[in-house]
Amino acid sequence: MSEIYTCATMSIDGYISGPAESGFEHLFHWYGSGDVEVPTANPQRTLKMSAASAKYFTELSANTGALVVGRKLFDAVNGWGGRHPMNVPVVVLSHGVPDGWPRVGSPFTFVSGGIEEAVAVAGKLAGGRAVGVNGGTIARQCLNAGLLDEVLIDLVPVLLGGGTKFFDQLADAPVVLEGPISTVEGRGVTHLRYGVRRS
């Protein structure tokens, strides 16, 4: 079975977006704060990171075989224009399929049966590599269902003061994590990796 992880860029006070979906210029500044070019599936979108962040990002991408995201994120980014920047299959957990989808050759699969179904489908698509689930509601559902193996945090030195938390409304808090398993110092970001302790 594929390893399941969640990864999000987070402010020091624990938010993955600020009030009214703000703060992204601070959270994702590290995507363009370096000299190392990191190509994505979108030819018009090349990232420029510090050497440490580029190594971390490319290794994570290479080890990821599929993603699970929610409908809110899918709609907010307009389906990434038809292909996720990591160029892997994406399972979208949604109550319904949006207009115009699925498209022929699309890497998106829509499921409505809950987080367990979404993770199972992603695991089959991942080809033995890891499955990444996006932060917020999807990460919480995955953790509450006992499916999450690791939590990766791209910690940015900003205080947003409110917004969407990485984790909220946990069923069995506190949740004890192992680690950090690894720490990578980038430019304007610290990449942290933790294991989820099984009870």
Rank of each mutant, 00 (worst) to 15 (best):
N78Q: 15
G123H: 09
V97D: 02
I115M: 14
V97P: 01
G186I: 06
S2W: 04
H84N: 10
A76S: 14
L192E: 14
V133A: 06
A62W: 06
I181Q: 14
I153H: 15
S94L: 00
G162D: 15
L147K: 12
M86C: 02
G188W: 02
Q44E: 15
A54W: 03
G146N: 14
F108P: 00
T64A: 04
L160R: 05
V38A: 06
F74M: 05
W101F: 01
L125E: 03
Y56G: 06
V176L: 12
G82K: 02
G82M: 07
E178Q: 10
G100S: 10
F167Y: 11
G163E: 13
K165N: 12
Y5E: 10
V36I: 11
H84F: 06
G179Y: 06
C142D: 07
G81C: 11
N144I: 02
E25C: 08
T58D: 15
A118F: 09
Q44L: 09
I115E: 12
V91M: 05
E21Q: 08
F28G: 13
D154L: 13
V36T: 14
S94T: 07
L93E: 04
K165T: 13
G70K: 00
N134T: 08
L27G: 15
K124D: 13
L60T: 14
H29M: 13
R197W: 01
G79R: 03
G188A: 08
D154I: 04
R140S: 03
A76H: 09
D75L: 04
S2T: 13
F24E: 14
L125R: 05
A171S: 14
C142Y: 06
T183L: 13
G146K: 13
H191N: 13
S33I: 05
V68L: 04
D149Y: 03
G105A: 10
G82Q: 07
S53L: 03
Q44P: 07
T183V: 15
T164D: 11
T109G: 07
L47V: 02
V151Q: 05
G161Y: 03
L93S: 00
L143E: 08
W80V: 06
S33M: 10
L93C: 06
E116A: 10
V175L: 01
D149C: 04
P107Q: 10
Y31M: 15
K55A: 14
G188P: 12
K165G: 11
R71M: 04
G146W: 14
M49T: 06
M49A: 04
F108A: 01
A8T: 07
H191I: 08
R187H: 12
P157Y: 09
G186V: 05
V97G: 00
A52V: 11
V131L: 04
F166T: 02
N42G: 00
F57N: 10
A139Q: 07
S53D: 11
N63Y: 06
V196E: 09
I153E: 15
E37M: 12
L148C: 06
V97Y: 02
H191T: 03
G161N: 03
A171F: 08
A139Y: 01
V175P: 08
A54H: 09
A139D: 05
V131F: 04
L93N: 01
E117V: 00
V131D: 08
N78G: 07
E21R: 04
A173T: 13
E178I: 00
R45E: 14
S112Q: 08
